[in-house]
């Protein structure tokens, strides 16, 4: 554990909590891509199956349980409790375009051709692109509520901090996991355009809206 990883995990947690609170407090999931949230629930489920096979630390177990629980709670709020506010027409990204290629890639490029390892690899690849339906939705509607942009910022920040974590671990522990690193770089790059808009607009008090 190093400072980058800890702050990365906390940033990830902050993103998840911000989204849940936003939906709960406003009693609305307008502007939120339910499809991205389904993908994140799938990511956590396939990655954390090792909860059943190995114990790493108390911290590790608790965080995994929180992530999984929050992911399913978010999906529940969007598709069940506040279904009436869900903007399905603008959430039109086709999930199979992500899940199928990612599944194929996980079977081809992995550390070990075993069931749990392939699911772990699948989750890593899928996480790197899981935000695309949300970004696609924002590009379709041309705007995002400020609280939604905070959510996206913390979600992007988490992966960026993990990049520093991997640099740290490479230098001080000689550890590197090429699959996680490449997927993490891809994931962070996907947020770059958004980071730019966040800094130039949202942090200056303006709403995030894209030019027509």
């Amino acid at each position: 554990m190093n400072i980058f990883r800890l702050t990365g995990d906390l940033s990830h947690l902050a993103a998840i909590i911000i989204l849940l609170l936003k939906i709960w407090k406003t009693r609305s999931c307008a502007g939120i891509s339910g499809k991205s949230q389904i993908l994140f629930a799938l990511v956590f489920t396939t990655r954390y199956l090792d909860l059943l096979t190995s114990f790493i630390s108390f911290y590790n177990t608790i965080m995994k349980l929180i992530y999984i629980g929050c992911a399913y709670a978010t999906v529940y709020l969007i598709y069940m409790k506040f279904k009436a506010t869900y903007d399905g027409n603008h959430d039109s990204f086709r999930l199979e375009f992500l899940v199928v290629p990612v599944g194929g890639l996980a079977c081809l490029v992995n550390h070990d051709f075993s069931f749990l390892e392939i699911l772990w690899t699948f989750s890593i690849y899928l996480e790197s692109v899981a935000i695309l339906p949300q970004l696609f939705m924002i590009s379709k509607t041309g705007e995002a509520e400020t609280i939604t942009t905070h959510y996206l910022f913390f979600l992007g920040l988490y992966r960026a901090l993990y990049l520093f974590n991997w640099i740290w671990r490479f230098y001080f522990e000689g550890f590197f996991d090429m699959i996680a690193i490449v997927a993490g770089v891809v994931q962070t790059i996907l947020y770059c355009d958004f980071f730019y808009l966040y800094v130039t607009k949202v942090l200056k008090g303006k709403k995030l809206s894209l030019p027509a």
Binding site: H12, I56, W120, F175, I179
Partner: peptide, 10 residues
Amino acid sequence: MRVDEVHDEL
């Protein structure tokens, strides 16, 4: 790169 170890990151 490690195969037989656990994935300790979240």
